[in-house]
Design a protein around this nucleic acid. Structure first.
Length: 581
RNA sequence: GGUCCCAUAGCUCAGCUGGAUAGAGCGCACGCCUCCGAAGCGUGAGGUCACAGGUUCGAAUCCUGUUGGGACCGCCA
């Protein structure tokens, strides 16, 4: 239930009645009629643009339509006042009882308040993180993990059936490099001196993997040619890396539904089948690409390759799916992977990628468009870079210098809740600063603590109330007589709570979970504001000594606030704080 | 050369997928604890929404171009 859609329905009914009465011509398109909170609260609780949207097609003046519509709206019990303003806005002030009913509904529904059905149960696959299994997750992956997980939660809350999925790139040449690196650590564990050359990974995290290998094989592999151990070590190493990555994700509170292995596509005909289905559409051919403009690689020379005609589906150039030596490019298994997702019956695919994959989205979209015949959309959400700051200085990560900051570093230092909330205080397509000092700061400047503090305050006042013998169980609060809640600060808070269901829908529709974080910050602000008014006006304090009925009504408002904060934090994957010491 | 992203207060950023006088935090100036948690609240100053056109009742928001910053651009993944 969404108050705004309720009132919009009322507006549409009124317009229909006006048409019946001959006050409006028939057949007007009302799709653009919106009912929204006005920017300026002084304009009332809700505003509709109906008169302005319909004026032109109806051949009437907006203010004339508005006057008639306003008169009809005034007749509804939920609406206390209607004003026509500006070029033809209709501003509505709702009866206090409407807000009181919202509070009751919040308390009765609990953290399910705001759940929406706009997803209509359609099946969405959200693929995120999908880091190569060659090392620990770093800060960039952390952002993708938090964003993808929160996006999935928002969609779930809005009525989609969501699958969280991780694509394991365990099929390419980088896994050979990983296997060789582990072999070096294995030799080391057998007492040999080793050097990490040819781009092998020198990171410490492979030391225990080499030791585990030594524990299992003893010295049986020492001195053996690569051909004898490479396959085994690929599996051994990727298993070890994926264990580490799952642990990292678990530390952040991210749980995947599906881990999909790229390797499982090879040797099973699945890549060939996906490519074949494109070939049937005449989208595969042999050809030579133009050299890239601008900075041309030194060793560029024209070569004939097998190409995907992605330009037929919106890409800028056709893309190679097979190298000149006959091996698949990375793109080929990726096509097969998306082919597999489509075969699993999803209605919508979402890929969460890092900004460095920006050049990749058109070909992915082209592939999905071609494979699904345009029936299933692929949305790609790019997460821009995370800029690290430490002690007020930008902190440059370098894999070679071995000082890249891992997900585990971040979570260990600031905790999963703060990490997650902070990563969502910026929209995904803007770069994000991550300053260790600021993120740990406990003040209004840090939204995490500001929101948690509001929740803790509610818990605190409820503890006090119980000590004073006031029944603040949900049943008692929902039954409280709230007619005394009429102060503008109290109503402002209730109004903000009523926006929650609408906000969920907007966040889901736009795929922007950061909106939830900003909403919670605003909501907390409204609550803190009301709280502090209690300093000057004792009548506004939530706990009214000796007046159980009034206390219950005011605490119902606070409780509803805490419920919505819990629900919102739940979507972000953050645990609400009961107290902060 | 091309593609994608970004540009809003001194700083860091929101801005409801076109609405009214563009908002918050920090910083700055002043004020609020005998009182439910001051890790908080209030008041004030602060803007050519990068620039130039266009679309329409209406543009920070949509379109075109320009400038500046970032990411990426066959045989890596």
């Amino acid at each position: 239930m969404n108050l705004f859609t309720d009132i919009r329905a009322l507006v549409l009914d009124s317009l229909a009645a006006m048409t019946d009465a001959g006050a409006l011509p028939a057949g007007l398109d009302t799709a653009n009629v919106a009912v929204e909170p006005p920017r300026d609260a002084a304009h009332g609780d809700m505003a509709t643009n109906a008169a302005m949207v319909l004026a032109k097609p109806a051949g009437m003046k907006p203010r004339d339509i508005a006057a008639v519509l306003a008169a009809r709206l005034e007749g509804d019990a939920r609406i206390a006042r209607v004003d026509v303003a500006g070029p033809g806005f209709i501003n509505m002030t709702l009866a206090d009882g409407v807000w009181h009913a919202v509070l009751r509904r919040v308390i009765e529904a609990g953290t399910d308040f705001g759940r929406s059905t706009i997803g209509e149960g359609s099946r969405v696959n959200v693929e995120f993180v999908s880091a190569n299994p060659t090392g620990p997750l770093h800060v960039g992956h952390t952002r993708g993990a938090v964003f993808g997980d929160a996006l999935a939660s928002v969609l779930d809350f809005a009525g989609y059936e969501v699958t969280r999925e991780y694509y394991i790139n365990d099929g390419g040449a980088q896994v050979d490099v990983l296997a060789r690196s582990v072999y070096l650590r294995y030799l080391e564990a057998n007492g040999q001196d080793v050097a990490f050359e040819d781009g092998t990974y020198p990171g410490d995290y492979l030391i225990p993997v080499g030791q585990a290998l030594a524990a299992q094989y003893g010295d049986a592999l020492v001195g053996k040619p690569e051909a004898e151990w490479l396959d085994d070590l690929r599996d051994f190493a990727t298993d070890a890396m994926m264990h580490m990555i799952r642990d990292d994700l678990a530390a952040l509170g991210v749980e995947m539904d599906v881990f999909f292995s790229e390797k499982s596509l090879y040797g099973t005909g699945r890549i060939e089948a996906a490519i074949e289905s494109l070939r049937e559409k005449d989208l595969i051919y042999r050809g030579v690409l133009e050299p890239p403009k601008g900075k041309r690689p030194e060793d560029w020379e024209p070569r004939e390759q097998t190409l995907f005609r992605s330009t037929a589906h919106g890409d800028d150039v056709d893309r190679p799916i097979m190298k000149s030596d006959g091996a698949w490019t990375y793109f080929a298994p990726d096509i097969a992977y998306h082919h597999d997702k489509l075969s699993r019956g999803f209605d919508l695919l979402i890929d969460v990628l890092g900004a460095d994959h920006g050049g990749y989205v058109k070909r992915l979209k082209a592939a999905v468009s071609a494979l699904s015949g345009g029936r299933v959309p692929l949305e790609v959400k790019l997460c821009q870079l995370v800029k690290l700051w430490r002690n007020g200085e930008p902190f440059k990560m370098s894999k070679r210098a071995g000082n890249f900051v891992t997900l585990r570093d971040v979570v260990d230092q600031v905790g999963p809740d703060v990490t997650r909330f902070h990563m969502l205080t910026r929209k995904n397509d803007a770069a994000l600063d991550f300053d260790f000092a600021k993120v740990l700061e406990q003040s209004r400047e840090n939204p995490v603590f500001y929101v948690q503090y509001a929740h803790a305050r509610v818990c605190s006042v409820m503890r006090k109330a119980r000590e004073a013998g006031v029944d603040v169980d949900d049943a008692a609060l929902a039954a409280a007589d709230m007619s005394g809640l009429g102060h503008s600060a109290e109503l402002a808070l209730a109004r903000k709570l009523a926006e929650w269901p609408r906000l969920v829908e907007v966040a889901a529709r736009t795929g922007e979970p950061h909106r939830v974080a900003f909403y919670l910050y605003d909501l907390a602000g409204d609550f803190h504001s009301l709280w502090n008014l209690g300093h000057d006006e004792p009548a506004l304090r939530l706990l009214q000594e000796g007046d159980t009925a009034t206390s219950q009504a005011k605490i119902a408002l606070a409780r509803a606030t805490a419920v919505v904060i819990s629900a919102g934090l739940g979507i972000l994957g953050v645990k609400p704080a009961e107290e902060m010491r």
